[in-house]
Amino acid sequence: MSNPVLRAFFFGRALAEVLNEKVEETFTNALSELGKFDAEQRERLRKFVEEVQARAEREAAQESTTGATESSGDLQEEIDELRAEIARLRAEIKNFRS
């Protein structure tokens, strides 16, 4: 291959192929990491919800065994606070995803 134009052509083609492979590899890795991050966030949210439900069930069981009852206003206030916390966490997760 003594023709410089021919050598430049093959060099350019090889360069384009290697760059294309590297970009594809980087893009694939980025998508993989994004998918992994999304799965981790969903798992954390699932565990959080399970923890809240378990705590609520424990407290409800404790209340029923002691015979003490909370006023409905206090209970509604607690429910509203929990809903607000869940909404805030969902918004944070949405911000992470975008």
Rank of each mutant, 00 (worst) to 15 (best):
L34C: 06
R83M: 08
E77Q: 07
T26Y: 15
I79H: 04
A14V: 05
F11K: 11
G35I: 00
S2F: 12
R13D: 07
L19C: 10
R97T: 07
S2L: 15
Q62Y: 12
A87T: 06
R55A: 07
V23A: 06
I86Y: 00
N95Q: 15
L82C: 01
E77A: 06
G35Q: 02
I79W: 04
S64F: 11
E78S: 13
E63P: 00
K94Q: 13
A68S: 15
E40H: 09
S71K: 11
F9I: 10
I79C: 03
A30E: 05
N3V: 02
L19S: 13
D74S: 08
E21G: 09
R46N: 09
G67V: 04
K94D: 10
L31N: 11
G12S: 14
A30G: 03
F96I: 07
E50I: 01
Q41W: 02
A68F: 15
S72I: 12
E85V: 01
N3Y: 02
N3T: 01
A16N: 05
G67M: 03
A54V: 05
L45W: 03
R46T: 11
Q62I: 10
D38P: 00
E81S: 02
N3W: 02
E85H: 02
E92H: 06
D80V: 00
L31S: 06
S64D: 12
R90I: 07
Q41G: 01
L19T: 14
E50R: 02
A8G: 01
E25S: 09
V5F: 14
Q53A: 09
V23F: 05
F27P: 00
E25T: 08
F10V: 12
A54R: 11
A39Q: 15
L45G: 00
R55P: 00
G67I: 04
T65R: 14
A54D: 09
K22G: 04
